[in-house]
Design a protein around this nucleic acid. Structure first.
Lengths: 327, 327
DNA sequence: TTGAAAGCGCTAACAT
DNA sequence: ATGTTAGCGCTTTCAA
């Protein structure tokens, strides 16, 4: 910037004025400065800029489970869109569902002085965020609520969605319904398992714990777990998969044409309607969730200081075939 | 940091030493400082840190087409992984295949002083990067080569992959092969169209331009275009789709069970093997591409100053059924 | 082992 | 309409 000033024969402040489009610069001076900027290939250093107190970095942090998972990339897409409209950039990182990793990512983002953080938490205790919150960093939780602190959150109605799924299977006459449950440390998976239990309880059916497969975390694990279920002496006639990875695993295990096992999955996914047996799902909208969270964050950044808000998004049952297979 | 120094009763520099784990600090002094840091919830300001000349920001920029597209999110995932291992964060943005948008994103990243940029370019002219390159910002192109400048690039062998796809259809006896071609402004789509033409030329078949649908850009466009193809008086017996979005569109148009139209798509995708008719594809590995590009970038950041390198990754034909349907 | 002073690139406040 | 000065939070000499 100093070089530009020297080249244009003006002071630093004048260059600053031109760069930031402040008014009160003579047209010809402005042109001289613009020329110098062009000639020198100058870019304002936004790091130095945001060093001044009271300045924003115009950056938000996004912490998700895994960019490679379409559920999370759907969120990321929506967040990026909103951020872009607000003139913000997004720094993103994946936790791979590791609480320690989540903390490290958040710490790194704070050192980078992001104005706000959008967080799909992996851990359950977020008291480590108290200092940041107090320091004025806006934080909005996505998909899973905060633990140990009060903060904004946008989540899905997991329990009733899962309950709905299982009730749908019960309505078709299923009585032995398996569960592919992901790791209990994943909040949504735990909630959906509760919904599963609630539906069975509501129908007066005792839960057969042998039909529960808690623990598998990726599609390959889920595949193995689903095979185990089918290999039981008295296998389930239907399966509820708590998320898209579980559904994928289940699909591969269930495709054996000899047996017709019903399947309902939580999370919709691309091509679910194009499969040999189209998949019935509890659908919700990751993009809407990401968008709502981003909107909430920017409202905070714009000065909204109301009490923490919790937005709960609805789910809907999409029947496509796999969930309507009779026992 | 000043507060920490005051609280611990030491100088700024001593705090700096402790924070950066420099040696030459008495153990008890170090403890006092660490306590103060803890008590004050202090985080080093990495922005200020990287303001000093010669300092890195430990940040790389990633410019892709669209995080929501699994092809790009596969790249992003691999890049993030490598960056993480190197202690870097990733700032990402999507161009939505708009050249102007690409330039703006790159400019923003430069203002944020990223150490390097990984770029899936939307435009064809990258001379605007010359100043940055000269200023020492490392740039690696992904999926599409640079235009007008010399720079590292990791790409896929598009022409021969596409040629292979079409030759596979020709080998089954197809003579009227439609093309779903995406926008010509997308480099890979253009290259794959060349491969299509080359295969037909090699077989001595004149290209029927009415079977080419150039222009559709998302799956919905592709769906409409595929329907147009099928509605022709003399429709194609096979279709080559130049990328995953085109394949998705084609799929939905072709699922009418009454007619059996063969399909080969460029880009593999999740569940391609689980569809009613499993899809034959020209597969390659977006993650490998992203990973290789990131490795190359970090080698540059580590001081490698060799001539620009171009890495060309192979493709492979994966036959699953849709490409083996006879005419 | 510790500290003082200078300065990175920028902008806010205050001249001129 | 333009310039001067100070200082953001840190690290880098250099000195004690």
């Amino acid at each position: 910037m100093r070089d530009v000033a020297a080249t244009a024969g003006v002071s630093l402040k004048t260059v600053s004025r031109v760069v930031n489009r402040e008014r009160g610069v003579a047209p010809d001076t402005s042109v001289r400065v613009t020329d110098a900027i062009e000639r020198l290939g100058f870019h304002r250093n936004d790091l130095a800029r945001s060093l001044r107190p009271g300045q924003k970095t115009s950056t938000v942090g996004l912490v998700i489970g895994d960019v490679g998972n379409p559920f999370f990339s759907g969120i990321a897409r929506a967040v990026e869109q909103v951020a872009r409209d607000e003139g913000y950039m997004v720094i993103a990182g994946s936790t791979h569902e590791d609480a320690q990793h989540e903390k490290e990512l958040v710490a790194t983002l704070c050192m980078r002085r992001v104005d706000g953080i959008l967080l799909v938490p992996a851990g359950r205790d977020h008291r480590y965020l108290l200092a940041e919150l107090a320091a004025g960093t806006a934080v909005v939780f996505i998909d899973r609520p905060p633990g140990g602190i009060e903060a904004d959150a946008v989540v899905v109605d997991n329990v009733s969605g899962a309950r709905r799924a299982v009730e749908h299977l019960l309505a078709s006459g299923h009585r032995r319904i398996g569960l592919l449950g992901d790791s209990t440390s994943v909040f949504t998976a735990a909630q959906r398992t509760l919904g599963y239990r609630a539906a069975l309880a509501g129908a007066g059916i005792a839960v057969d714990e042998r039909l529960l497969r808690i623990g598998p975390h990726d599609a390959a694990d889920a595949h193995a777990a689903a095979r185990e279920l089918l290999a039981l002496p008295d296998p389930p006639t239907a399966v509820f998969a708590v998320n898209n990875r579980m559904s994928l695993g289940a699909l591969r295990a269930l495709r054996d044409p000899g047996r017709r096992v019903a399947l309902v999955g939580f999370d919709d996914f691309e091509l679910a309607d194009m499969l040999a047996t189209p998949i019935t799902v509890i659908a919700h909208d990751p993009a809407a969730m990401g968008g709502a969270a981003a909107e909430l964050l920017f409202r905070r950044l714009a000065g909204d200081t109301g009490p923490p808000r919790q937005v709960v998004l609805p789910t809907r049952l999409v029947t496509r075939g796999s969930g309507e297979i009779p026992p």
